[in-house]
Design a binder for these strands. Structure first.
Ligand SMILES: [Mn+2]
Ligand SMILES: [Mn+2]
Ligand SMILES: [Zn+2]
Ligand SMILES: [Zn+2]
Lengths: 138, 138
DNA sequence: TCATTAATGCACTTCCATTGCATTTGTTTT
DNA sequence: AAAACAAATGCAATGGAAGTGCATTAATGA
């Protein structure tokens, strides 16, 4: 069981207080977060720092970006064993039209998609919208 | 064979010179266009008019919006028989990483997507990225 | 023709992503 | 430990795109 410090160092991310806090925040959240979500959680720090921190996390492959169609970029921790850097994100994302939360459905892989002759598929973004388990009411 | 005027009227869209021009522009293009694309094609008219025209087309169900992940909204004509108003768009979209164009693959329907228990899927956005037929080089 | 309604054009706002630069903090090297 | 270096942070500003308010113009219908 690695500490967060060890994890960050293993990815060549220098450990700072802010980065530890942001990482912990992402762990606690089980949903994808926006930059503003992080901003509101840490009123002390500056948006730019948060922005660059999350970008660093993304480049180093511990966070992935999610475009759920709301127009606001969201981020979530990669699951262990995920290698976004190399191959692209394979799981689907679910956006709830009620509570407005977006979750990674990491257990639900994206099926093989056929494209016409001459087209070469490199990666796929699949977003399902509807009602999440908390909002579907049963 | 309906004229464009008849088509617009049948959808309760008042016929104006600008609307005819924009409609024709969309027909000629075989790819999804951004608002700026339209803006550049008609330097005479105002962005707001173009914006509201395309929104009108969208509301009336002759155009659908495409979020291809570039962060810029794109639009394309609905195919005949398409009823976005009622059901959601079922076909997939392809975004070329080389020429940056996005096309509707109307013949390629989105497969049935499984979601976990408790989740209710209402609609799906599926975007495939890679190289289009013009750019894949063969 | 006159009244009513819709379309258009201009100015402005808002929201989010992104960058430049000076400052602070942390790491290496001597 | 001190000096030199590099990276992280904070503030201010920019840029791009979506969207709105309102006055003006054009189309429709009584
Ligand atoms: Mn995810
Ligand atoms: Mn389409
Ligand atoms: Zn929900
Ligand atoms: Zn292409």
């Amino acid at each position: 069981m690695k500490t967060i410090e060890e994890l960050l160092e293993s990815k060549n991310i220098r450990v700072t207080a802010m980065r530890l806090l942001i990482y912990k925040f992402l762990v606690e959240k089980d949903v994808a977060v926006t930059l503003s979500d992080i901003e509101n959680a840490f009123e002390k720090s500056d948006r730019t720092t948060l922005y660059r921190t999350i970008k660093t996390f993304e480049e180093k492959g511990i966070v992935h970006q999610i475009d759920d169609g709301t127009g606001i970029t969201k981020y979530a921790l990669c699951e262990k064993g995920c290698n976004c850097e190399i191959e692209n994100d394979l799981h689907l994302h679910f956006h709830c039209n009620n509570c407005n939360e977006t979750v990674c459905l990491t257990a639900h892989k994206i099926p093989q998609i056929k494209v016409p002759d001459g087209f070469v598929a490199e990666n796929v973004n699949l977003v399902v919208k509807g009602f999440c388990d908390k909002c579907s009411g049963h």
